[in-house]
Design a protein around this nucleic acid. Structure first.
Lengths: 139, 139
DNA sequence: GTAAACCCTATAGTCAACTCTAGGTCAAGC
DNA sequence: GCTTGACCTAGAGTTGACTATAGGGTTTAC
């Protein structure tokens, strides 16, 4: 009925290595994953969902130790709802800031693309350097 | 006439530490910075400009070794114009990809903000879980 | 004239996030 | 029944990017 996945299958699905998944587990990011009698991890569909959230937090630049805090809060139930809400609101703000930052980075890069396009057309970078030569004020 | 800056001034201006700047120098990112007789680095206005480009490349996710390649190309003159153009075009593509990625991350985070907002209003996370209870098909 | 506040090099240490190795278990296929 | 391949743990090693320390030199402020 409920499909169970091995660590290898989950790794493939999420584009991670099994090493990484085991490392996350060791760091306490996956307390919800159950085990077979022999120790083999048994991933449920919902575990993969949780890992996707972890990946999202990682993509937002959150360090693993902070992600662990969040996971702990999830285990603690409703008493931590406010904390979790606040955390996501804060994440939202930092991602917004990152977007702004990236936009600025993009502007500089686009300017450089243009710079090198014209230099390439002219065959030399000097075309930009001569731009900047200060014209001596005639008497 | 032409203002010269110390490593400390440059560090402050670019929000880096002097350690970081010296580390960059050691990694070959600043071959253009001249030295006083006693070894003190003398930064020109244009050096700060170059460092801003380096910061931009760093912000785009480029590792320091690759930035060094670019700096080397700059020292090699016009023969490397094509490489440099190609590099910035590639950077542009990766930054675009990062923006896409961030947008997806943002969507998930916003969804979670909403999820926790409603949970908080309801006083329990169960409001979302009960959503998903499969209604047993009556006979 | 000396202490503070810079500068320098060389080298060691730190940190996060993996990544791999050694040594072992277990199930499936031939 | 034994090899192959996937799983396990504990722990060591790697990488990138700093960050700090030790030891030493100059310039500035009192």
């Amino acid at each position: 009925m409920m499909k169970i996945f091995t660590i290898g299958e989950v790794a493939k699905e999420l584009n991670l290595t099994v090493y990484t998944l085991r490392y996350y587990d060791k760091e306490g990011l996956m307390p919800f994953v159950e085990r077979a009698a022999n120790g083999t991890r048994l991933f449920k569909e919902s575990d993969i969902g949780a890992l996707k959230i972890i990946e999202c937090l990682k993509a937002s630049g959150m360090p693993i130790k902070e992600i662990k805090n969040f996971i702990d809060w999830c285990s603690d139930g409703d008493s931590t709802l406010q904390k979790r809400y606040d955390m996501f609101m804060e994440r939202k703000a930092t991602v917004e800031a990152q977007m702004e930052e990236l936009k600025k980075t993009m502007e500089v890069i686009e300017h450089k693309c243009f710079y090198y396009k014209t230099a390439l057309d002219a065959g030399t970078e000097d075309i930009h350097k001569t731009d900047k030569i200060e014209i001596p004020i005639p008497n």
